[in-house]
Amino acid sequence: MNIFRLAGDLSHLLAIILLLIKIWKTRSCAGISGKSQILFAIVYVSRYLDLVTTFISVYNTFMKLVFISTSVATIYLMYVKFKATYDHNHDSFRIEFLLVPCFLLALLINNAFTPLEILWTFSIYLEAVAILPQLFLVSKTGEAESITSHYLFALGSYRALYLLNWIYRYYAEGHYDLIAIFAGAIQTILYCDFFYLYITKVLKGKKLQLPA
């Protein structure tokens, strides 16, 4: 564990908490893509299957359980409790266009051709693109509430901090995983346009609004 990794994990946790606060306080999931949330739940479940096979640390187990349970809770809030506020007309991204290619790529490029390893690889590829339905929704409506912007910023920062963690681990421990590094770089690049808008608009107190 190094400072970049810890900061990344905390940023990830913060993102999830911000999203739950936004939905709970406004009693609404308007502006949030249910498709992205479903993809994140698939990411966590397929990646953390090793919970039952490998023990790494109390921290590791705890965080995995938190990520799985909060993503299920988010889906429950969106599709059951606050269903009436869910913006499904704008949330029209076809997730099979992400799920199928990620799974095929995981079958082709992986560290080992075993079920758990293929699912881990699939989750890494899927996570890289899971935010696309959310970014698509923001671009369709042309705006995002400020708390949704903070959520997206924290979520994007998490993998960017992991990139720093991987650079650190390469030099400090000689550890690297090309699949995670490659997917993490793609994931971070997808947020760049949003990061720019966040820094130039939201941090100056303006609403995140895309030019018409």
Partner: peptide, 10 residues
């Protein structure tokens, strides 16, 4: 590389 290691990251 981590090929043989468990995935210790989240």
């Amino acid at each position: 590389s981590s090929t043989k290691d468990a995935h210790d990251e989240l």
